[in-house]
Design a protein around this nucleic acid. Structure first.
Lengths: 153, 153
DNA sequence: GAAATTATGATACGTTATATCATCCACAGT
DNA sequence: ACTGTGGATGATATAACGTATCATAATTTC
C-alpha cells in the first residue's frame, strides 16, 4: 500500500490530466480521509482541518471540496451514513467495477468490495421490470465489522 | 388492493396479536403514509397531521411513532432518502422476502420489489469474505422512475 | 494588467434527528 | 374509588447534516 504522499501525487497527476486542479485545501481534505482510514462526515473534516491545519472553513467550502473529490473519483459519498470515504482504489490506474460499501454501524469503518457483475445485472433487471432506471448500482450496506461483532459478544 | 380502513383494521389486529397497541395517533401517521402513496419525511408527516387532523406533535413524537411502526413492520425507514414509507405488503398475511426499495431521486416515489434469494445470498457471501456481517439485506437503490425519466427527455 | 474563470469565505438558514425531562392515560391490584 | 405502574405522548432545546446567496481571493489568459 502506497503511503499518503504518494497517493496525493498520484491524485494530483490524475486531476491535472483531467484538466482539474487538486488545490492545497482539496489535498488537505483528501489527506484527512486517507489518514482516518474510515468514513468521516463533513463536520468531522472541519474538526480535522481545525486541529491539524488551524483552518476553519465553512461547511459550504468543505461540501464543495467533497463534491469535487467525488467528481474526480477520489472520494465516495456514502448517503446511507452521511459520510465520505477515500476511494480504496485511488492509486490504481485501471478502471474498476462499481464499488459496493459495507458500513459498520457501530464504529463507522468502511470496507469497499466488488461484487460479481451478474449480481448487479440481476438487480438491474428487477429494477427495470418495476419500471425504474437504476441511477447508480453503488450499494451501501448496513453491516457490523468483525471487531465490533466480537466486542459485542 | 384493499382500501385504507381495511388496511388499518388489519394492522390493528396484527399489533394486538403481537401484544402492542396501534393507538389513534399511530393510526393517523400510518394513514398519512398510506394516503400519500409515497415516502414522506417525519416533517412532511407533521405537516400532514396539522392539515388533516389539526394536531401539532413535536418531532420526538413522530419519530417515536415511526420507530414503532417500523418495529411492527408496517412502515419501512429509507435511510437513503431520510423518508418513511408504508410497507406495500402491509395487508398480506404471508411472510415476505426482504424488501428492496427503488427510490426516485427526482419525485421521491418509491417502488418496493423483491429480488431472488440467490442474489441476496451472493451478496451476503461477498460481505462475509470481507469480514463483515450484513445487518440487514434491505437495499435502497438510487433510481429515476419512468415518469421522471420521460419528463426529463 | 484587465478581464474572465476558478476557488474559497461569510452569513444565514433549512432539514433531519435526538436528548432530556415532564405529563398524561389506561389498566391492574387492592 | 385509590393508587401505582408502564406505556404513550408532549415540551423544549439542541445537535448534525446540508444548502442558498452573495462576497472575495486567487489564478489564468489574452
Amino acid at each position: 500500500m502506497p503511503n499518503i504522499s504518494q497517493i496525493l501525487s498520484h491524485a494530483e497527476a490524475s486531476c491535472r490530466q483531467r484538466g482539474t486542479n487538486l488545490t492545497e485545501k482539496r489535498k488537505r481534505v483528501l489527506t484527512g480521509l486517507l489518514q482516518s482510514k474510515k468514513a468521516l462526515s463533513a463536520y468531522d473534516l472541519i474538526d480535522y482541518l481545525r486541529v491539524e491545519f488551524d483552518e476553519a472553513p465553512p461547511p459550504t467550502s468543505v461540501y464543495r471540496i467533497l463534491d469535487f473529490l467525488s467528481e474526480e473519483n477520489l472520494v465516495h459519498k456514502l448517503k446511507l451514513a452521511n459520510k465520505y470515504v477515500a476511494c480504496s482504489h485511488i492509486s490504481c490506474d485501471h478502471a474498476h467495477e462499481v464499488p459496493q460499501f459495507l458500513i459498520c454501524d457501530d464504529c463507522g469503518s468502511v470496507a469497499e468490495i466488488g461484487v460479481k457483475k451478474n449480481v448487479i445485472n440481476t438487480l438491474q433487471n428487477s429494477v427495470e421490470q418495476a419500471g425504474y432506471l437504476l441511477k447508480s448500482p453503488q450499494l451501501e450496506l448496513h453491516c457490523v465489522c468483525q471487531d465490533c461483532a466480537e466486542r459485542a459478544a
